[in-house]
Each structure stands twice: as structure tokens, then as C-alpha cells.
């Protein structure tokens, strides 16, 4: 298959190849490698300094906690909504399918503002009520989880919907006709066949969740050691002229992002990526 797609090499092939590689080198590869270089300018000193700063470690801990919550919520919601969208017929389905993509297109600052208007402690629609039952959302961890879940909401669904359409329902119907209940059918038949798409969506959501900045900045109040996430620490440290710590924290976040991408590239079915 690959041989039928790869064109006979002409001068143009090499020109295009060089343009693309140069473009990506100057826009992505070189800049990213400089952050790695800055981080290790004095050996591992910057990393150890950063990791011994309680502001950084608290932020990293909060970031991981929030990301796990957001990913779990989006995975459960994502599986449910994907099954509903693909397997069932109901009024407004295509509207829901379109609206699911909305978080991808909305500005993070707008997301933060929206959540503030709904869950703000004094002026929000639900905030005062939730506060009165002792549940603070804005400027606290639940708000950060909401913001993170918001921005990464469509990622699992975008992976699952095409896969669910692809596999059809023949096996599920066979299982059902042989007496398997809905849960057994899901666990034994549906889940194994969407497994990789699900892992792919979860890894993407995790990467996105660990890195959210704008929405979290608005809703969290950005209080050091309380509601400050890793990305907010990068901003603060950079502006406080603790650039080494900013670079070291950025390096850790970059490492996670690239690790996620490598996992995804390995998982991606070969026929999608290069046709072999």
C-alpha cells in the first residue's frame, strides 16, 4: 500500500521535504530543545532546586490530583455519550454531537469567566447556594477540576465515536441474543473493541488536563500552595525572575507532553499514520 502512495521522487519531492522539515525545525524543534538546554544549563541543579521548592511541589501535586479527577469524569461521561450518540436515536442528537465540540473552540479565558458566572461564591448562579451547604467551587479545587474537565471534554468522545461506528453492532447483538445482559455485553464485547481508541482518548485528555492554564487561572484565584497549578507556577516564577525554576517546571511538563505523544504514536494504528 505504501508504495502506491509514495510518489516517484522528483526535485519537487525534495523541495517540499526540505521546506516542511525546516519549518518544523524553526517553529517547534529548536525552541523546545532550548528549554531542555536551559533546564540542564547547570547540570541537574535547576531540577533539584525546583523540586525542593514547596510552591512547585504543591502545585505539581494539585495538578496531578485535578488531572486525574478530570480524566476520570471525562472518561465515564465520554463512554456514555459516545454510546448514546452512536447507538441510539433521540431528538436533538445531532445538536448534542455538534455542541460536544464547543469546548475545543472556546477561549480558555471565556471558559473561566463562564464558570465564574455560574459558580462564583457571591455573584454566581449556583455559587451562593453551594457555599451555604459548605461546598466552595470557585477559587478552590472543585472549580479547577470543573475548568479542566471543561477544556478536555471532547477528546475521549472524538476518539470513541468513529471507532464505535466502525465496529457496528453485529457482535453486540449476537451476545445479547445469546442471553448476555447489557453490562456483560459492554464489558466483554464493546469495551475490548474500543480499548485502544479509549486509551488514546484518555492519554490525550491527561496531557490536555495537566497543561490547562487560562481557564484555571481565572477560576482558581491563583493562590500559591493552595490553588496554584503547575502551569500557573511557570508564569509566576518566570515573572518573579526565578527563571531557572520556571524552566525546570516547564521541562517536566514538556516531558509529560512528549511522553504522551510518543505513547499515542505507538498506539496509533499503522494504517492511519503511514499506510503500511
Amino acid at each position: 500500500m505504501a508504495s502506491s502512495r509514495v510518489q516517484p521522487k522528483t526535485a519537487g519531492t525534495y523541495v517540499r521535504r526540505v521546506i516542511v522539515i525546516a519549518y518544523l525545525f524553526f517553529l517547534v524543534v529548536w525552541p523546545v530543545s532550548l528549554v531542555v538546554k536551559h533546564t540542564f544549563d547547570g547540570g541537574f541543579g535547576n531540577i533539584t532546586t525546583a523540586l525542593s521548592d514547596p510552591v512547585v511541589t504543591d502545585a505539581l501535586r494539585l495538578t496531578v490530583y485535578v488531572a486525574i479527577w478530570a480524566v476520570v469524569i471525562n472518561t465515564v461521561f465520554g463512554i456514555g455519550v459516545s454510546l448514546l450518540l452512536v447507538r441510539y436515536e433521540f431528538p436533538g442528537r445531532s445538536v448534542l454531537s455538534a455542541l460536544i465540540d464547543l469546548p475545543l473552540a472556546v477561549s480558555p479565558v471565556v471558559v473561566g469567566l463562564a464558570l465564574l458566572l455560574a459558580y462564583g461564591g457571591t455573584n454566581g448562579l449556583f455559587g451562593p447556594f453551594l457555599n451555604s451547604i459548605g461546598f466552595q467551587v470557585a477559587f478552590a479545587t472543585p472549580g479547577i477540576i470543573l475548568a479542566t474537565a471543561f477544556v478536555s471534554l471532547p477528546l475521549v468522545i472524538r476518539e470513541l465515536v468513529p471507532t464505535l461506528q466502525e465496529i457496528g453492532t453485529d457482535q453486540e447483538q449476537a451476545a445479547r441474543s445469546l442471553g448476555a445482559g447489557p453490562w456483560a455485553t459492554f464489558r466483554r464485547i464493546t469495551l475490548p473493541s474500543i480499548k485502544w481508541a479509549l486509551v488514546y482518548g484518555v492519554v490525550l485528555s491527561l496531557a490536555r488536563s495537566l497543561g490547562e492554564f487560562g481557564a484555571v487561572k481565572v477560576i482558581s484565584g491563583n493562590i500559591a500552595q493552595q490553588t496554584q497549578t503547575a502551569t500557573l507556577v511557570v508564569e509566576q516564577k518566570y515573572q518573579d525572575f526565578e527563571q531557572e525554576t520556571a524552566y525546570a517546571t516547564s521541562f517536566l511538563l514538556t516531558l509529560i507532553a512528549i511522553a504522551a505523544l510518543v505513547v499515542i504514536t505507538i498506539l496509533r494504528p499503522k494504517d492511519k499514520s503511514d499506510g503500511n
Binding site: 524543534v29 490525550l204 497543561g211 516547564s250
Partner: peptide
């Protein structure tokens, strides 16, 4: 393939720093 996706996976604040 990995390089193209970096801008999507990298936290935006880190993208600015980069």
C-alpha cells in the same frame, strides 16, 4: 508525526516560554 502534535500537547504557558 510527533513534532507536529507537540504544539497541541504542550501546555500553552510552556509554549510561550519555548
Amino acid at each position: 508525526e510527533v513534532v507536529i502534535d507537540i504544539p497541541f500537547a504542550l501546555p500553552t504557558i510552556v509554549a510561550g516560554l519555548v
